[in-house]
Amino acid sequence: MKVREYKSLQFNHLQWQVFPLSEEAILLECDQSTPIQTIHICSKQIEEILGEDLLDIVTAYHSITVFSKFSMDELIQTLNGSIRQIAENKNEDSSSAIRIPICYDFAMDLDRIAVHTKFSKDEIIERHISATYQAIVIGFTPGFVYAEGLDQALSCPRLSNPRSSLPAGSVGIGGNQTGIYSLASPGGWNIIGRTPMKLFDKNLRPPMKLALGATYQFFSISKDEFESWES
């Protein structure tokens, strides 16, 4: 029982371990050192290769889970050895970054972050707004995006008691992770501000403004601008 039972697969010059996750989901896992951007590209390519046969796909840090009608062997056969050009990730340059308004007047935990980081409030905001963030994983709630790019000096431990309800658009820092609460939900991250931009709209397809790999930057708005914002 100590041996992991899996099959393996060569795809995009990467070695993947393959496991069944459910009757219709197959987990493809690659080495932990693989950059998330490479996983995003592989995930996109699997979508293209499987086309209509793909029912759903969940892309995570070192894994891609494929929901399809294919058996494990059929999926391995379809993907094995398939080598596609790993295109440069176009989103990486900051000129294509999505600009997201943020109002820092809605911060709930600036004091906490200040105590923890020993920066002044202005310094915290300055460091937060000058960074470029990249959407790397979706999870937690519908449309919630975990992002990379937080100035690590702003890392701040999660609240010991999560809030039972945060408004949609709350921008959070949890440990060294960051993200924007796409829907009103409970949450244990430090809230540094809020955006009036609707990042998740259930009536749109795709419902999310930030696709995996998308980069974004914040720009500061006043409370008045926040109230009158139309996204």
């Binding site: 029912l55 759903d56 796909i57 969940v58 892309t59 929901f67 979706i138 999870g139 937690f140 709630t141 519908p142 449309g143 919630f144 795709p206 419902p207 999310m208």
Partner: peptide
């Protein structure tokens, strides 16, 4: 719901 786990939808 089927097919929307990619958007984090349960």
């Amino acid at each position: 719901r089927f097919g929307y786990r990619r958007y984090g939808i349960p």
